[in-house]
Computed example of a mutant assay.
Amino acid sequence: MEIDVKDYIDANISLNDRLFPVFTEDLSDVSIVYTFSPVTGGLAKQSQLTLKVIWDDYDRCKEIEKELNEILDQSESDQFIIYNNTKFKSALSGGGVLFNDGPQMYELTLIYIIKWREK
């Protein structure tokens, strides 16, 4: 599931391979760091997807947030997305923004709950 959702994001927004698992040290351009955490198991599983948009331009971070929400923040009436071997629906659950003094970058966090199952 994780690879399918990551590939779905890559295919639907223009990041030029700037999506990284867990962390990144490459801050030469805007980066998105992702982590998945299981919430529930069973046939219809739920996972939490946390995305951190990292860059020194706040407005660019907000543009990417809008793009991510367009493809991942679905309403209850939306159809499930089928991508590769995963059928899923996601909704924005929380987030926020902070300025990280170390690298002098904004970190815009988005948290999604994903309901999913294998096809």
Rank of each mutant, 00 (worst) to 15 (best):
I3V: 13
I3E: 05
K6W: 06
N12C: 03
I13Q: 01
L15P: 00
N16D: 14
V22C: 12
F23N: 12
F23L: 00
E25P: 02
E25Q: 04
D26T: 09
S28V: 06
D29Q: 12
V30F: 11
S31F: 02
I32P: 04
V33M: 06
V33E: 07
V33I: 15
T35A: 07
K45H: 05
S47A: 13
S47H: 06
Q48W: 03
L49T: 01
T50C: 08
V53Y: 06
I54T: 00
W55V: 09
Y58L: 13
D59Y: 13
R60V: 13
C61Q: 05
C61V: 08
E63R: 01
I64N: 05
K66E: 12
E67W: 00
E67T: 01
N69D: 12
E70T: 14
I71W: 01
D73C: 06
Q74Y: 07
S75R: 13
E76H: 04
D78C: 10
F80E: 03
I81C: 04
I82M: 09
F88P: 03
K89Q: 14
L92I: 10
S93L: 01
S93G: 02
G94L: 08
G96I: 10
V97R: 11
L98G: 06
N100Y: 06
D101W: 01
G102E: 02
P103G: 09
P103V: 00
E107P: 05
T109I: 15
